[in-house]
């Protein structure tokens, strides 16, 4: 069982993850073949701004975003998502394993730093959990499934944190860590974690603001 989790299941998870994402991209573009009229048309060029004007514009438009309504959550969610992607990629242990098996590795962060970043990430998870438990407006749309998804995301980091500090039974924690990572990879394309991909794909549907390809596509 150890061998399966450490060996084949890793490749299976990555294959499901990548093929699942490709399938979702393919399906999305197949479903949104139609194009609609959009404004502004391509010929209209936007006004050129100087660097100072651009910064001022960005700061001013921040007031119209979630930054204004919920600054704490905006910061926490940004940190959460950035660390969720960056910490595993630039983790020393992962890069060593990559180097061992493929002979290539990325630049990696010192472990004392990733240790702190993981802790910050877990604090963000705790913040989300607290919101779900205590804010009535979040509780109104929360199901058991939401807690499960939060657990799926938090588990690799929690077990990774335990493994780094070698708390509890090291081998068991490591096996759970690998398993948790694989479960997360497999679930990403097919659950609400799919917003990892669809956050960007939905930009093809939104006209004018934060849009790709002028947001012309419609379902």
């Amino acid at each position: 069982m150890y061998d399966f989790i450490q060996g084949q299941l890793v490749s299976i998870a990555f294959v499901i993850f990548i093929l699942g994402l490709i399938f979702q991209i393919f399906k999305f573009f197949k479903l949104t073949k139609k194009k609609e009229w959009s404004y502004p048309p391509g010929e209209v060029k936007r006004e050129k701004k100087t660097a100072g004007q651009w910064v001022a514009f960005c700061l001013a438009s921040l007031n119209g975003t979630l930054w204004k309504t919920d600054p704490l959550l905006t910061v926490v969610t940004l940190v959460f998502h950035v660390f969720l992607i960056l910490v595993p990629i630039f983790l020393l242990g992962h890069n060593i394993l990559l180097d061992q098996s493929w002979g290539l590795s990325l630049w990696s962060l010192p472990e004392s730093i990733t240790d702190i970043l993981t802790l910050v990430f877990l604090i963000c998870v705790a913040f989300f959990l607290g919101r779900r438990l205590f804010l009535s407006r979040v509780r109104a749309i929360t199901t058991v499934y939401d807690y499960l998804i939060l657990l799926i995301v938090a588990a690799p980091f929690l077990t990774g944190y335990f493994a780094y500090h070698q708390w509890f039974n090291y081998d068991t924690v490591m096996t759970l860590h690998i398993l948790a990572g694989e479960v997360m990879l497999i679930t990403i394309p097919f659950t609400k974690l799919g917003h990892m991909l669809f956050f960007f794909l939905y930009r093809f549907l939104i006209g004018n603001e934060y849009s790709f390809a002028r947001g012309e596509r419609v379902w």
């Binding site: 999305f28 979630l66 959550l73 407006r137 979040v138 109104a140 609400k192 917003h195 669809f198």
Partner: peptide
Amino acid sequence: GKMKRYLSHCAHCSL
């Protein structure tokens, strides 16, 4: 295809 994706990708964040 459209609605199921919309419903499943809602992160229930209440933003």
